[in-house]
Simulated assay, not measured.
Amino acid sequence: MMTFDPLGDGISRVEHLDHMGDDLRVVNAARISFDRESHLECDDTGQWLQDQDEKLIGFLAENEHVSPFFHPQICLRITMPSFLAHQWWRSTVGVSRSEVYRRYVVAEPQCYQPPHWRLRAQQPKAGSGTGELGAERQAALSVEVERLYRDIRTLYGQMIQEGVAPELAQAVLPQATYTRWIETGSLHYFVRACGLHTGPMAQRELRLYAEAVSEIVGGLFPVSWKALTRHTAA
């Protein structure tokens, strides 16, 4: 099972659970229109698509014939801070998600602590610029944030022990709290989602997640992924 820790904190995760189909599935989903079917070339070294089938995938992507790319399905388990998850979930077409439900789960919350505090960009849509707070303030702010997280975890635990319903106790948790969900989507969905979060205006942390997803899905569908990422707009 392929697993990545995009934020490098030992908590964040992108995990490949399973998938259905391959590049040939895309080809035959297109060829069925003419009641035709392709097969892989084979020899002692392995199996691969025929040249004509690779060209067909390129043609489909370039001309936005996207329906064949909806047939392959990929299932991932993603662990991400809530403030990032809300942006990732902006992509909704061709995907189904099932999230950990803190109405029932009362495990101690885990929170993301950014290793660096970037400064705001002059251009609002860019989010953050290349500059950072000074080293002294960086260190002091990190201590303050960790203290805040610790106090919130303590308060949350006390509320649970006192019998407060978890569905209400979770209201005190910060947006930095990690959440986890299973995401099953089409090949085309993942191309669009990753394209949205790897563009020049994408948040750095989301870009790291998108790169991890790209490594997984692109490795499973190399021909289709290359063609789609060349031609598909986010």
Rank of each mutant, 00 (worst) to 15 (best):
Q158F: 05
V213G: 05
V66H: 05
A107S: 11
T79P: 00
P166D: 03
P72A: 00
R192D: 03
K226I: 00
V106K: 14
R118P: 01
M159R: 13
D23T: 07
V93C: 05
G46W: 08
V100Y: 00
G8D: 15
E64T: 10
Y112N: 13
Y101I: 03
N28L: 08
R118I: 05
G131P: 02
A135Q: 15
F83Y: 15
A107G: 08
G129L: 14
T184F: 05
R90I: 13
S186W: 06
S12R: 06
T45L: 10
A171L: 14
H116I: 14
F69G: 01
A135E: 13
V223S: 12
L208R: 13
L84Y: 10
A135N: 12
D51T: 07
E211W: 02
G58M: 05
L133C: 06
R13E: 15
Y104V: 06
G199T: 07
A212C: 09
N63Y: 13
G46E: 10
Q73I: 06
E41V: 00
Y189C: 08
M2L: 15
A165C: 00
P174E: 06
R153I: 01
W88K: 04
L148E: 00
S98G: 02
A121G: 02
H231V: 07
D22C: 14
Y112T: 15
R13N: 08
A140M: 15
G94Y: 08
H39S: 11
V164D: 01
E54F: 00
Y101D: 12
V172F: 04
P200W: 09
D44G: 03
T3W: 11
R90K: 15
L60Q: 09
A233D: 14
V14A: 01
Q110I: 04
V105H: 09
A29C: 10
V66R: 08
T177Q: 10
P81A: 07
V26H: 04
L60D: 05
K55V: 01
E62F: 07
L228A: 03
Y189I: 09
P166C: 04
P200E: 14
V213N: 03
Q47F: 14
A85G: 10
A212N: 05
E162F: 04
W88E: 08
D51H: 09
R207Q: 14
P6N: 15
G58S: 11
D18G: 01
E146Y: 00
S186A: 11
H71Q: 10
H197E: 02
W48V: 09
K125D: 14
Q73R: 10
V26I: 13
H65E: 09
Y189H: 14
G199I: 04
R97Q: 04
H71T: 07
N63W: 15
L141K: 06
Y149F: 09
D44P: 01
I160T: 03
I74G: 01
W181C: 08
V66G: 01
F34T: 11
L24S: 05
V66F: 10
G21R: 06
L24D: 03
Q138V: 12
M2P: 13
I57T: 05
R180V: 12
I32S: 10
H116G: 12
W88D: 04
M20K: 13
Q161S: 14
E132D: 05
D151Y: 00
Y156E: 03
A165M: 07
R204L: 09
